[in-house]
Simulated scan of single mutants.
Amino acid sequence: MAFDNKPKPDDRSDNAEKLQAMIDDTTENIAKAEQSLDFTDSDQQRQQIEAKNHRRRESIESFKAEIQDET
């Protein structure tokens, strides 16, 4: 039995737009997380939020570098 599987075409025409949307979403998540810091009394939770925001900022830098590669 033969399969006629063909890969989908590699369409990268809108990658920069998608990456910018991811940057915007990540920036919004950082802001929401920082607002939540005002409502937590737990040092452990505060450290987790700050660590996650640090990783988010690193991701944003990676997204920006990838946008430069795409354009």
Rank of each mutant, 00 (worst) to 15 (best):
A2C: 09
N5P: 06
D10S: 11
D10F: 10
D11R: 01
R12T: 12
R12G: 11
S13E: 05
S13R: 14
D14W: 01
A16L: 10
L19F: 09
L19P: 07
A21T: 12
M22F: 02
D24R: 08
D24M: 05
D25H: 04
T26G: 00
N29W: 04
I30Q: 00
A33T: 06
E34C: 03
E34A: 05
Q35M: 09
Q35H: 09
S36F: 03
D38G: 08
T40V: 15
T40A: 10
T40R: 04
T40Q: 06
D41W: 01
S42K: 11
D43Q: 15
Q45G: 02
R46P: 02
I49K: 02
E50N: 10
E50S: 04
A51S: 07
K52R: 13
K52D: 09
N53S: 00
N53V: 02
H54I: 00
R55L: 08
R55Q: 08
R55S: 10
R55H: 02
R56L: 14
R56K: 12
R57D: 08
I60C: 05
A65G: 09
A65W: 04
A65E: 07
E66S: 13
I67M: 06
I67D: 06
I67N: 06
Q68I: 03
E70M: 03
T71N: 11
T71E: 07
